[in-house]
Simulated assay, not measured.
Amino acid sequence: MHSPPALGIPVEIVRMGSYAALIDAQASGRVGYAIHSARSFAATEVVCGCVRAFRSPVAADGSTGFRSVLVVRESDSRPVSELRIAYSSEESVSGWQIPHQAISAGSLAAPQLVRAGSVAAVIAMYGASEVDGYFAWLPHVPADAGSDIERLFGGWNRAGVEAGDPLRVLWSSQRIPYGPHAAHNSLPDDLVEALGGFLDDMPTRTPGLLDLFEPVYGGGYVTPEPGDYRNVRGLVEGLPESFATSQSR
């Protein structure tokens, strides 16, 4: 336990063993401040309605979140229902859960789905012409209206993606923001403001600490809008109380 100068009060840092444990701890008020995934934050909101996101991380490429996308062979103009579309696994948020939600809601026609088991297998199946396209994700950069295929899966295995036939984006979800820093509603507003200022100054004043707080995202922070995580709630509403789910894209 120590007292950071930015806050002036004793702080205890606790490492949780899972997102399920984190959700339970913050929903019960045992933890006042937590670093969430987008999905665990949405789950906490569903459980208690007692948390608020006050900062969201920005990735080094300037992206503030990602979009689930359906990419298909550029030359293929058949209806979605006639296409064989690969996805990695049911645990993938971008590769299965968001598209499945869109299909269930009727905003995306149901294709002929093929489970590949992994992102690498998805790319390999497309390269071998075993499927007509696949579900993937693209980083979302504010004010960037394009859909750069080169950035599929954040640029991972770009050579493998480009080895197959040229692709086009046929469908895109709304932005899913990266997981926020969230405060329990019992924390005073001035303390939450101090926490936000501490995070805002971190990239320039304590970049080493930023590496610990955000090992994946290194571009600083933005203040989220109240409804930014509304799109994620549909992925967690109705789930059992364990919430022991994967947090992968």
Rank of each mutant, 00 (worst) to 15 (best):
S3D: 13
A6D: 09
A6C: 11
P10K: 11
E12Q: 14
V14I: 14
R15K: 12
G17S: 12
S18H: 09
S18D: 08
Y19P: 02
Y19R: 08
L22D: 01
I23F: 05
D24H: 10
A25S: 14
G29L: 07
R30Q: 13
V31H: 01
G32M: 09
I35N: 07
H36A: 04
R39Y: 10
R39W: 05
A42E: 03
A43E: 04
E45S: 10
V46Y: 06
V47K: 15
V47N: 08
V51L: 12
A53D: 03
A59V: 00
A59T: 02
D61E: 06
S63T: 05
S63H: 04
T64S: 06
T64M: 07
F66Q: 07
S68V: 02
V69W: 02
V72N: 00
R73M: 02
E74K: 12
S77I: 10
P79N: 09
V80W: 01
I85Y: 01
Y87E: 00
S88W: 03
S89F: 06
W96R: 02
Q97G: 00
Q97P: 03
P99F: 04
I103S: 02
S104Y: 03
A105R: 14
A105V: 01
G106A: 09
A110Q: 13
Q112L: 15
V114Y: 01
R115S: 11
R115N: 06
V119H: 05
A120T: 15
A120K: 14
I123H: 01
I123F: 07
A124G: 06
M125G: 03
Y126A: 03
G127A: 13
G127N: 15
A128Q: 13
D132H: 14
G133M: 05
G133Y: 00
A136N: 10
H140L: 02
A143W: 01
A143V: 01
D144K: 02
A145T: 13
G146K: 06
G146V: 04
S147G: 13
D148C: 09
E150Y: 08
E150M: 07
R151M: 11
L152K: 01
F153C: 01
F153N: 13
G154M: 07
G154I: 01
G154E: 07
R158P: 04
A159D: 15
A159P: 05
G160R: 10
G160K: 08
G160P: 06
G160I: 07
G164M: 06
G164T: 02
P166W: 09
P166Q: 08
R168P: 04
V169L: 08
S172R: 12
S173L: 06
R175P: 05
P177L: 00
P177K: 05
Y178C: 04
P180G: 03
H181L: 15
A183K: 00
S186R: 15
D190P: 04
L191G: 00
V192D: 00
V192A: 02
G196Q: 04
G197Q: 12
G197D: 08
F198A: 15
L199S: 04
D200I: 06
D201S: 15
R205Q: 14
T206V: 11
P207I: 06
L210Q: 12
F213T: 11
F213I: 13
V216H: 10
G219L: 03
T223E: 13
D228T: 09
Y229C: 07
R230W: 10
R230C: 04
N231H: 11
V232F: 05
V232K: 02
V236G: 04
L239C: 11
P240C: 10
F243K: 05
T245Y: 14
Q247C: 07
Q247R: 12
